[in-house]
């Protein structure tokens, strides 16, 4: 049973609430299959042991996927409208990889904002993950583009952070 929020629960418990929700079943996280190899170049997990974050800023594809979701939202990119299986490649199995609590919380919140409170998908983990996949599918090219920005003669990490920083700054400017 879902316990009411705002009672005696801590934030951690809240996050765990959504983590539990999104981990109740096994889901797949997708990234654009045409970008998969490119993306993997920036994922440390997929690089040699000697590789560092400078060249591969993301530990896991999950981390790229999460930032791609945020980038899509930040750049107001509409989620891809086709099912991920149409355009994407499975990069993470949520049964193998524990989704971070904050991400689960954010995904649930984004789903609410996207679907509206009365939408059936608001508390549907599948739809929430699907939304995330479609947003990641939308944000990945932008993020990848930033990582590969030839103008910046810095490391991919620097580029990623710089991109994150500027994007964040933009989002934080009151409209």
């Amino acid at each position: 049973m879902i316990r009411p929020a705002g009672t005696n629960e801590t934030r951690k418990e809240i996050m765990n609430y959504f983590t539990t929700l999104l981990s109740s079943r096994g889901f797949s996280l997708y990234l654009p299959s045409d970008l998969k190899d490119e993306i993997e170049r920036y994922v440390l997990q997929h690089q040699k042991v000697s590789a560092t974050h400078e060249r591969a800023p993301f530990r896991r594809q999950l981390d790229f996927w999460a930032l791609a979701v945020a980038v899509a939202i930040a750049h107001d990119l509409p989620p891809l409208d086709s099912p991920p299986s149409k355009w994407g490649a499975k990069v993470v199995d949520t049964r193998a990889v524990q989704l971070p609590d904050g991400l689960c919380e954010l995904l649930a919140v984004v789903a609410l904002a996207t679907f509206g409170p009365n939408h059936e998908g608001v508390d549907d983990p599948k739809q929430i993950i699907d939304l995330g996949n479609c947003l990641a599918g939308a944000g990945s090219p932008e993020l990848l583009k930033k990582l590969q920005d030839p103008k910046l003669r810095t490391t991919p990490l620097d580029k990623a952070l710089e991109f994150a920083k500027t994007t964040r700054a933009k989002t934080l400017i009151p409209e």
């Binding site: 560092t52 400078e54 979701v69 904050g102 990623a160 994150a164 994007t167 964040r168 989002t171 934080l172």
Partner: peptide
């Protein structure tokens, strides 16, 4: 570097980038 790179995984970053939706 890990910490710095970890910033890309940070909920705060994700939340701030997703601020509109949040």
């Amino acid at each position: 570097l890990g910490l710095l790179a970890g910033q890309l995984e940070s909920t705060e970053l994700l939340a701030s980038l997703s601020k509109r939706k949040v």
